[in-house]
Design a protein around this nucleic acid. Structure first.
Lengths: 93, 93
DNA sequence: TTATTATATAGATAATTTTCTATTTGTCAA
DNA sequence: TTGACAAATAGAAAATTATCTATATAATAA
């Protein structure tokens, strides 16, 4: 597996250590969602949502697909696999 | 799988979103370590180390075993498996 | 072009987390 | 019991993060 810095590993899991971001991931579990839809479900302002989506995308676990004015977010299978692999390696599972 | 609150899920992954805690987990990869040994390797004061060990133990990923004056920490296979399962479930892997 | 809508950015504040020093608690050995 | 050592706790400061309001950017539609 590719060697990541400890800083990068922490960045990956930073995606998962906030309750609102966990809620967002739950919403993405059923497939791609537009940011505007996520806004309806999570009780934060639009700029706060934008911040959370940036953290999620920076981790690689989520990807955004721009389509006109909208951005459709979804779970990245590759990013998720990397996170799972790193966790496994880190904990010797 | 057992149903966890979003707050609890965030608590699990909080263990993994700090660079020093990742370093600690790397040290535990080779087996149980005494807190005093971890202190030698990670450049923080004893109370700060104590704080990090608490966060790691609260997540369930690490367990401490008290032996006299010392506490020996190790990765909990059960805690690690739970974290891996939650991550898998959350990202549909 | 102008208006409208989706998202991002800037900048500030509040909340949380990390870190420290000082002290306390618990355990063992003289 | 006293001294030494390991770890935890209290309390404060520093750093980071989450959140907001206001504004800017980008894309579409009229």
């Amino acid at each position: 597996m590719m060697k990541l810095t400890d800083k990068k590993i922490a960045e990956i899991f930073k995606a998962l250590c906030d309750e609102n971001r966990i809620k967002i991931l739950h919403l993405l579990q059923t497939g791609e969602k537009c940011a505007c839809h996520l806004n309806d479900e999570i009780n934060v302002t639009q700029p706060t949502m934008s911040h959370h989506m940036k953290v999620l995308c920076d981790s690689g676990i989520v990807v955004g697909r721009k389509e006109g004015k909208w951005i459709h977010y979804s779970i990245s299978p590759d990013g998720a696999k990397l996170a799972a692999d790193v966790l496994k390696e880190l904990t010797n599972i």
